[in-house]
Structure formats: C-alpha cells, structure tokens
Amino acid sequence: MSASTASTIVSYTGKKLGSLRSERRWALWTAYASLIVATIIFLAPPFYMLVTSLKSSSEISNLSGNPWIVRAPTLENYMELIANPLFRGFFVNSVIITLCVVAISMVISVLAAFSLARMKFWGSQALATGVFLTYLVPDTLLFIPLYQIVGSLGLLNSIWGLILIYPTLTVPFCTWIMIGYFASIPKELDEAALIDGAGWMQMLTKIFIPVALPGIIAATIFAFTVSWAAFVYPTAFVTTPEHMPLTIGVVSQLIRGDTFAWGQIMAGALMAALPPVVVYAFLMDYYIAGLTAGATKG
C-alpha cells in the first residue's frame, strides 16, 4: 500500500519534470525556428541584390535557371560603376554632405543639450519639449515650403542646400538623446568640476563630453546614417546628376528603361548601402543604444 503510493508520487513528479523540460525544449525550438525563418526573409533581399550584382547582363536576362544563384560571378558591374565618374561623384557628394551634416549636428546638439540639461534658462523646459516635437515632424511634411526657401536662397541643385536642410532631420533626435545622457551624469560631478575651477566650456569639453562619450558616439552614428540615407530632400531639391548624393543618384540615374542594367543598379545600391552597414557592423552596441535611447531615456 505505502510502497505503491510512493511509486505513484515518484512517477508523478517524474512526469511533471519531464513535461516541464520538454516544454522548455519545445519553446527553444520554436524560438530558433522563428529566428531562422525571420533571418532568411530579412536577409533575402540584400542577398538577392548581391547575387544579381555579381551577374552579367546576359545571365540576368536568361530566364531558364535559378535566379537565386550565380553561375559565372563577375565583378564587371562594380568595375564599371567605379570607373563611372557620375557614380564617383555621387559618392563624393554623399561623403561631403554627411561629414558636414554630422559635424554641424553634433556641435549644435551637444551645446544645446548641455545647456538644456544643466544650465537651464527661461523657456528651456519648453524648448526641450519643442526639440522632441521637432523630432516627430517627418521630412515629408515640410519639403515643399523648404523647397521654396532653398530655392529663394539659390541653393537648389547644390549640395549646400542639402547641408543646410539635413540638420533638421538629425539635430532634434541627437539633442534629445544627448539631454538624456547628460542628465544621467550625477550633479556632483559638475559641482566638483566647478570647485576644481572649470568654466562652463571646460566643464563641457573636459567632463561632459568624455563621460557621455557612448552617447556622443550613438548620436554621431544616428546623424551619419540619417544623412547618408536621406531621400526626400535630395529628390526634391536636386535634379542635376552631378550634385546628387548616392541615394537619389542610384535610384534615378542608374535606371535606364531599355537595357538590363539590373546588375549595375544592384551593385550601386549595395555600394551605397555599404558605409552604414559597415558602421553598424563595428559599432552595433552604440547603434542600438542610440536607437532605443529615444524612448528609454529622457
């Protein structure tokens, strides 16, 4: 009698444990299966772009085989593009624009964030809210009046017009996350610096910027990716190919209706996408910190 009760208990707990373990294992398999499927789907387009970019026109136009593999890989598309002065021009334009915009954005937003997070002045609270609201204004809301404004300054079809306007895309968010990073620096740190004899500018350059370096990097990455990927403004403000940055250049100039330039288009798109991807690959943690900072900080 007692032995049988004992054995039922044992088998009961055994079963329970087993089911818990198998439940766990099943959950893990679901997780891996979902992730694998998602990764395949997420990476398929860039992969297919890569495959296409390695094909010759004749292979692309050949409908008989599996389009997802490349039979005779060639770098000819890349070579042609690199030799193409127009494409190189796009690249140079993008680099100049992005460097200027990143520099301008960081200077404006670090100064402003320091002043808003630490010094305060009449209306600074309202300004901080205003900064956030500006971040929520999409580029497509204001590109028409901006078109007029840029036009009246004589900056249409010029990279300087873009350098002037892009900071509206980058500065609000950079300021916002820098406010968050600066605000998380303990107040005693500036007081110690004040007592040590630092002025406001020294406090910013010697204490705040080094301490908030991860935030600075995250904001820089953000400014870089946004201005590299900007599309609406260059599409609206630049119609002359020699002044185009990469995004609109690749989209509008490499497409020629009649021929099979697909290999070249894909090669161009991939090369244009390379800088942000490389930055992402090397600075992933900062990239993600910047991405999530908007909602989790400040």
């Binding site: 387009p45 772009m49 990716t225 599309f231 995004t247 609109i248 894909m266 996408a273 992402y280 990239y287």
Partner: peptide, 11 residues
C-alpha cells in the same frame, strides 16, 4: 540599417 531607398530597389 540599409537606407530604405536602396533596399527597396532590391525589392
């Protein structure tokens, strides 16, 4: 991470 204008070209 890929600028959407460019990845859309792929699509």
């Amino acid at each position: 991470v890929i600028p959407p204008a460019l990845s859309t070209l792929g699509w």
